[in-house]
Design a protein around this nucleic acid. Structure first.
Lengths: 235, 235
DNA sequence: GACGACCTTACAGGGGCCTTTCAGCTTTGC
DNA sequence: GCAAAGCTGAAAGGCCCCTGTAAGGTCGTC
């Protein structure tokens, strides 16, 4: 813990990044940078920083999306940087999984105070912390950072819906999920009763990821109850 | 999980407590209140709320002290409510074991967002330390997460209806349930008087889970009254 | 021993589930 | 800006297992 803490600063304005970088570096933190959400996700997967300063307004992938994506595989503390006075943004950030927010423009003092506070809290909570950019299930591998799936190291092209479905099931590996739960999570509450679409999507997903779609090993059906991914130890 | 989350609001200003209470209640949380740290500690010990909103400035016992005291026996998530701009308070709060802080005055939106965020984080942390919910009865084991049943560690394939029936009886272990109760719970109110179907399903269930279906040990019949699973100590 | 309560077995229908096809819409490539 | 390709959701067809009905047996009580 005596090691320098690494902070990932994400913003598309180089001038602003420089400024923050200087502030943090002189305070004894190590700093890495990324210019948009996409880069940020990849950087986190690769480097596992101790904290992220995430700007909201960015090209390619905005801060909210990046935050949600990060939360799929990491509990790294995130401070959102929002534009002045936009309360809606702050709420959206917290809901996306951010730990705190700071309003632009901010003073060096305020920035450092927030960073210290969030790091301190994270340290206390380290117990359950996890950082796992990959999920494996038999020969199947999910790259949560890139949202890419490979089967026996051959890439599998999944659509957005198929990926969300797979990811939802993987996040609950070993636990059964009802059709309703899957529908509300993947499609939204308004689809809660539309099992047909789930069946269709699941069928397509199985065709792509199951070695033998007739006898699935990744996603199993419990008739009348729900679906689940078995833990690897079983099977 | 569908149960209402209970939030304990601690502050000595009744006006403020009312306000927060209304906001949280309309959002679907259950709210209890305490007027100072002393009361808060007692309330937590008695009610085990899911989250605490803890004001810093209070008579009798201030928020920091209360927070430390709470942490001696509880890991319940705590959000500290601090006065404007007092960074020292925020640090002190986090050091005392708080999970997050919010600065007074705050908007309803921000309060709710923080509450959601902290609850989500707490829930997520549970996952790691999560013991799979199992129900055991003699050699029978019900995996409630996967809706799977094993007898002497051999899997038992139950249908949806059989499983629901077993689960209903297990949930009331030691207590007798009438045919009516079982029918309304498992099949729905419109089947209340259809004992035949209960008999058939129960028979099939016993064939699968009872070592000797003629002399059941898991599900016993009380003629003219109902059915029950005996507690393990009896039998 | 008779009656009602309960259990067991057999069987046919239906419903849950899977797959394929198709049309509307969005995205991509030129 | 257009055409092609791809994604999504609706619909239809089919399979299989579950489920409830019905009929006959057994147990327990009076």
């Amino acid at each position: 813990m005596s090691d320098k803490k690494t902070i990932l600063v994400v913003d598309d304005e180089p001038r602003y990044v420089r400024l923050v970088e200087v502030n943090l570096t002189t305070e004894g933190y190590a700093v890495t940078t990324a210019a948009n959400g996409q880069e940020a996700v990849e950087a986190v997967a690769a480097q596992a920083p101790d904290l992220i300063l995430l700007d909201v307004m960015m090209p390619v992938m905005d801060g909210f999306t990046a935050c949600s994506r990060l939360r799929e595989f990491s509990t790294v503390p995130i401070i959102m940087v929002t534009a002045k006075g936009e309360e809606r943004d702050r709420v959206r950030g917290l809901d996306a999984g951010a730990d705190d927010y700071i309003v632009k423009p901010f003073s060096a003092q305020e920035l450092l105070a927030r960073v210290r506070a969030v790091l301190r809290r994270a340290e206390r909570q380290m117990v359950g912390t996890f950082h796992k950019p990959f999920f494996r299930h038999h020969e199947l591998q999910i790259d949560l950072a890139r949202a890419e799936v490979t089967s026996a190291s051959k890439p599998v092209m999944l659509t957005a819906t198929e990926y969300r479905l797979l990811q939802t099931l993987a996040a609950a590996v070993g636990r059964m999920l009802t059709a309703e739960e899957l529908l509300t999570t993947v499609w939204g509450p308004e689809y809660r009763d539309d099992k047909e679409i789930l069946w269709v999507c699941l069928s397509r997903l199985r065709q792509k990821i199951e070695p033998d779609p007739k006898n699935p090993i990744h996603i199993l059906t419990r008739q009348g109850l729900g679906y689940y991914m078995p833990e690897e130890s079983e099977s």
